[in-house]
């Protein structure tokens, strides 16, 4: 092994060590405790009890399957809507605005806005006595706050979906703009010279170019929403809960044995997220290749 080669690895070592040690121990501890290895409670037997209790036990199975279905519903609905809106907004921007630095700055600023504050803003905007309800009352559409539809802290997850759709549209638009600026504008020009009309250019040039990237980005968004905590904790209800909220509830339970169940939940959730995210990164690599 040459010296240069050894130095390269040495330069990588601190970063890899931090990620491997901190993240690695997290995975190791999480998985082993979900399997019932809780030495501080005197429990040293490996079993799938926690998984069984959470998924099939009479006390928790309804809560678990509801949370799983609810997480899937919220993540899928928010992702689909965000992807559709992002595509429409990107197309509406047109080549000139897509290259406009101020447009990109606004989108980036949106991205930098913390989810926590975004959720609080929506809470104040959409609550039954919030800003929109006041406007509706001023217009004479409603009389009492109760007449205003329940848009946040609702059982269908509307508030959480609205929060994620509005928050992830800029993320997806930036991905689409990057793809279009890198390749599509010149292809579009060629197609135009060859006599393709607007619809043909969209159908045969632009869409095939952006769809793989949009799909990859959407899967990342799905994975992120599926495992997120703050927004559903603030804009959600006690029942149904999303998986991340349920997992943390179990973990913080005064009964220490519930910890193993909380870990089991978080391992299951992380597995779903990882699968989706790996699929996304695979698709993205294919999308980047011409």
């Amino acid at each position: 092994m040459s010296r240069a080669y050894a130095r390269t690895w040495l330069a990588l070592l601190p970063a890899l060590a931090i990620v491997a040690v901190v993240f690695g121990t997290s995975v190791l501890y999480g998985v082993s405790q979900s399997l019932g290895w809780l030495p501080f409670l005197g429990q040293r037997e490996i079993s799938l009890d926690a998984y069984r209790t959470v998924m099939f036990g009479a006390d928790h199975r309804r809560e678990f399957w509801t949370a799983l279905a609810f997480s899937l519903w919220v993540s899928a609905a928010a992702t689909l809507l965000a992807a559709l809106l992002a595509l429409l907004l990107t197309l509406a921007l047109g080549p000139q605005m897509r290259a406009n630095r101020r447009v990109l700055t606004i989108l980036n600023l949106n991205l930098a806005f913390p989810h926590l504050v975004w959720a609080i803003g929506l809470l104040l905007l959409l609550a039954q006595s919030g800003v929109l309800a006041r406007i509706a009352a001023a217009l004479g559409w409603i009389e009492r706050p109760a007449d205003f539809p329940v848009l946040v802290r609702d059982r269908a997850g509307l508030g959480v979906i609205i929060a994620y759709v509005t928050k992830e549209v800029p993320f997806l638009v930036l991905i689409l703009v990057a793809i279009l600026r890198a390749q599509a504008e010149s292809y579009t020009a060629v197609a135009q010279t060859l006599g393709a009309n607007r619809w043909q250019r969209l159908r045969y040039v632009t869409l095939p170019l952006v769809l793989p990237g949009l799909l990859a980005g959407s899967l990342l968004v799905f994975a992120f929403i599926f495992g997120a905590y703050e927004v559903p904790a603030l804009l959600g209800v006690r029942y149904p809960k999303m998986l991340a909220v349920l997992a943390l509830d179990f973990f913080l339970n005064a009964d220490l044995r519930a910890r193993a169940e909380g870990m089991a939940l978080s391992v299951l959730m992380a597995l779903v997220v990882l699968l989706v995210a790996l699929l996304a990164s695979r698709l993205r690599r294919q999308a980047v290749r011409p």
């Binding site: 992120f224 495992g227 943390l248 978080s266 992380a270 997220v273 990882l274």
Partner: peptide, 9 residues
């Protein structure tokens, strides 16, 4: 991509 809830727990 692993949820922070899982990492933190």
């Amino acid at each position: 991509v692993v949820p922070t809830v899982a990492t933190g727990i």
